[in-house]
Design a binder for these strands. Structure first.
Lengths: 73, 73
DNA sequence: ACGAGATGTCAGAGATGTTTGACATCATGT
DNA sequence: ACATGATGTCAAACATCTCTGACATCTCGT
């Protein structure tokens, strides 16, 4: 619905790297719904800052490891 | 309006540190309105991830230098 | 063949973030 | 005294993000 975001992320990769972590697992850990995880993995929109922090924490990595913002506009 | 956020920020400090940067200046640079800058500086809500990235870029610092997320919940 | 788990789609309702515009206060300089 | 710029408040419209729930597809194990 929203305009596609410029922010990219490595959520899916990190999730697999973390072992048997499913979308539902991650959603639980972060405290959001599976829908939201799906939408983010697909880059349909960028999450709120709070959620971005929580996701990074779920993987125990800094925020910049999960989300990237392209150089210029 | 929104529930107060857990995310804290150093926008105001960075703005002063950057010299004569006013709220309106920053808002322009980042592409948002002055209202939004005010609300964020006051911690009334946390910005979107995109905006957080843009703000960090406006100050030429990493995102974690501007926004912090407290340890636990 | 069947059931269960993981991923995905769709649509609508609800919550949060952003804009617009009008106006108030304080400090500064002329 | 007046004008200007910087900061702040308020309220309502608007945009974006998140949730709920129902359902489809694929894979895997039994």
């Amino acid at each position: 619905m929203g305009k596609p975001t410029r922010v990219t992320n490595r959520v899916r990769a990190l999730r697999f790297a973390a072992g048997e972590m499913t979308q539902a697992n991650l959603a639980d850990r972060v405290g959001v719904t599976r829908q939201t995880v799906i939408a983010i993995e697909q880059g349909r929109y960028s999450p709120s800052l709070e959620m971005a922090f929580q996701i990074a924490r779920a993987f125990n990595v800094p925020l910049d490891d999960v989300f990237q913002y392209p150089e210029v506009k």
